[in-house]
């Protein structure tokens, strides 16, 4: 606010609301509750994907058994080695790549199919909606671990199969969100008007409904991402997800479970990374939602 002295300049013709509003929006992202978690996520992402090449790390599973359980700070092994003599830093970073790929992939699967099903279920409320909703209910009532077990038993555990298994169960979550939001929007007058003037359903869904529900869906996507990350870790821990020797944060914890008392760091380090990533995703979701609320105001 300008503090002009009360002189004849005190009356300035009409306001400039447009640019000021846009400035305000950009500024809404520039606050600690958005920037800090975003920066942490970006750092983890960069470290995992660029780190191994940048620092010429050894491959994660080519360790020498004679180098087993080197302490942190050993020459050539900054974070030490595990019981097989594999470099821990490399394990952690490459494991991070796998964990991130799997959880983003699974989240994207859920986002695309779940949102589509949810929107259609919400728009065509009668028969189609009821049928789709029951399907989502079935997926929801189905213990998510079963499909993973079945897939692991049938197709063998692998990165791609883990994505499918987790993604499948993300569909139900996105479906519910998208349906609830669509139901909210569908009753609004402009949709009713569009419907009664004969615009095709898919055109309304895409041009009118999607923009109005996208915000909520993407806000849920960050939460789904953290769920997917936990699911990946849990499955890999149980030996049903990413198979050893490919490392992932989950199976690093799982495979070192029996050395808990001997070398707790082998579990604590991936656990911290997992925690930092999931917590940042959760915090970012909070921060962005806060921003949404203040924009509406």
């Amino acid at each position: 606010m300008t503090t002009a002295t009360p002189t004849n300049t005190s009356m300035i013709p009409t306001s400039k609301r447009g640019p000021r509003l846009r400035l305000y929006r950009a500024r809404a992202y520039r606050k600690p509750s958005v920037i800090v978690p975003a920066a942490i996520l970006l750092f983890i992402l960069l470290a995992c994907f660029a780190g191994p090449t940048l620092f010429h790390l050894p491959k994660p599973s080519v360790g020498n058994l004679s180098d087993y359980l080197l302490p942190i700070g050993s020459p050539h092994h900054l974070l030490g080695t595990n019981t097989l003599g594999n470099d821990m830093l490399s394990q952690l970073l490459v494991g991070g790549q796998i964990t991130i790929i799997v959880s983003v992939g699974a989240m994207a699967l859920g986002l695309v199919f779940g949102t589509l099903i949810g929107m259609i279920a919400g728009y065509y409320e009668r028969i189609v909606g009821a049928v789709l909703m029951r399907i989502l209910d079935i997926i929801f009532a189905f213990p998510d671990i079963i499909l993973a077990v079945a897939i692991a038993a049938y197709l063998g555990p692998s990165v791609i199969n883990t994505i499918w298994a987790i993604g499948f169960f993300n569909i139900a979550g996105f479906g519910r969100i998208a349906r609830a939001q669509t139901l909210r929007v569908v009753r609004m007058d402009f949709i009713v008007a569009g419907r009664s003037s004969g615009i095709s359903g898919f055109s309304i869904l895409w041009t009118h409904i999607w923009p109005n529900i996208a915000g909520r869906v993407f806000a849920y996507a960050l939460i789904a991402l953290s769920y997917a990350m936990m699911a990946e870790a849990s499955l890999s821990f149980l030996g049903l997800g990413v198979p050893i020797p490919t490392p992932s944060w989950g199976n690093i914890i799982g495979s070192n479970q029996s050395y808990m008392s001997l070398a707790p760091l082998l579990i604590v380090m991936p656990a911290i990374l997992l925690f930092a990533t999931i917590a940042s995703a959760n915090l970012l979701a909070d921060g962005l939602q806060e921003k949404r609320a203040s924009t509406i105001e």
Binding site: M230, I253, M260
Partner: peptide, 14 residues
């Protein structure tokens, strides 16, 4: 936040 960001099995193990 801490409890919701640590997978159950990690929390359990620790």
């Amino acid at each position: 936040l801490v409890c919701s960001s640590i997978p159950g099995f990690v929390l359990g193990l620790l």
